[in-house]
Computed example of a mutant assay.
Amino acid sequence: MTLIQRYFFRQIALPVAAACAALVGIGILSQSLDQLEIIVERGQSVWVMVKLTLLAVPQLLAVILPIGLFVGALISLTRLQREQELTAAFASGVTRWAVIQPAILLAAIVVLMTLATTLVLQPAAQRQARAEAFAIRTDLAALLVEEGRFVQGPGGLTVYVQQVEQNGLMKNLFVYLDNGKAVRTWDANEARFGRSADGAPTLLLKYGTMQEYSSKGVLNQLSFDSLPFDLSPFTSTDEKVRYKPSDLWIGQLFNPSPAVLARVGTHGELLAEAHSRLSSPLYALTAMAMALAAIMGGAFSRTGYGARIGKAAAVFLVVRVLGYVVVAASAWNGWLNLLQYLLPIAATAVALRLVFMALKPHRRRTWPAWRRLKARFA
């Protein structure tokens, strides 16, 4: 690139990066508010909430990057046009294509970033997030412990905890077990969840007693300073992690196994998701082309470009919403997958045509027959 092109690239790239960063921050904030339930109701740590929040970001990037590109490009191009830097470049002999080439290059970079996100980062993060959510949902510690309430667990187990401290220490714990064969109760001043040497989940009870009725109806009582309570008989579950089409790799979407088709979705839904991942990066080119058309697709205006920017934003919103509609419809009609590519490509071509049509002088259209008639009677 020439010196002026590098200058334009920097002037456009910085607002685009700032807009994308702001939108990512808003997305992280909204996701963190949704994940507060994990701390409040599931008793998980702040780190678990942060990890789930960050794992949700790649799925948002496919939507955030084109919008951030559109907003940042409008901000930078408006400033360049208002300060007549674009006019000075044209007056010095720089062609229109040379001026918009840095913007197109930036859009191509965003396309590659979005493609890497949809093909690699999104499925990897979604699968990890799904596994983390499954572990939280099946976490016996979170299911059994609720401060100040009797919680019934599997296998006839009932647990009561008076107080749970921030470090996971439980105070004044009561455990009742009635599995149909024996009735036992444990009470302890302190308790903490842990793992045994072989990795089995245990509940370590401290400073308490255990009561049990024998088969002859005799009450046996045992005092202890430390007693591990094995939780492995109550942790068995047949439930498995259930994935969605957005969690699968691109190869699994195009060539799904019978198990995937049985558990995740139909062949049409998986194909629609696969083509959506490949076509969604093209909307970055559409965003940049419409931003260029809004600022450079007409004559210079000293009063601003609010009307043009509003029209461009409305058209971009309509095109993007239509893209989502086409994705949903493609699950039922495979031929519509072609429209997932044609829609952003056609919108980009129309916008670029408006940019280059601004070079041609506006001429009033007249009919040849009307011109001959006027010449005859003149």
Rank of each mutant, 00 (worst) to 15 (best):
V16D: 05
V40K: 12
G334P: 08
Q211L: 11
M210R: 14
Y176V: 12
A200F: 03
N189K: 15
L373N: 08
R192E: 15
L144K: 01
A294T: 06
M296Q: 13
R127P: 01
T53D: 11
T202Y: 09
D187R: 15
F377V: 14
V71H: 05
L29H: 07
E239S: 12
R195G: 04
Y324V: 08
W47L: 15
I39C: 08
D247I: 00
L222H: 11
R364A: 13
V350R: 04
Q162A: 15
Q35K: 13
F316R: 05
P245V: 07
R320A: 10
D225M: 08
I39D: 05
S196V: 01
V50Y: 08
Y243G: 00
A351M: 10
E190C: 02
K216H: 12
L55S: 10
L339Q: 01
L219E: 08
Q122H: 04
R192Q: 14
A351E: 11
G199H: 01
L86G: 05
Q11G: 06
V24Y: 02
V120K: 01
V161Y: 04
W97A: 12
V260C: 02
L3C: 09
R363K: 12
I295G: 09
V50Q: 13
N167Y: 08
H275N: 06
Q11N: 12
K51R: 14
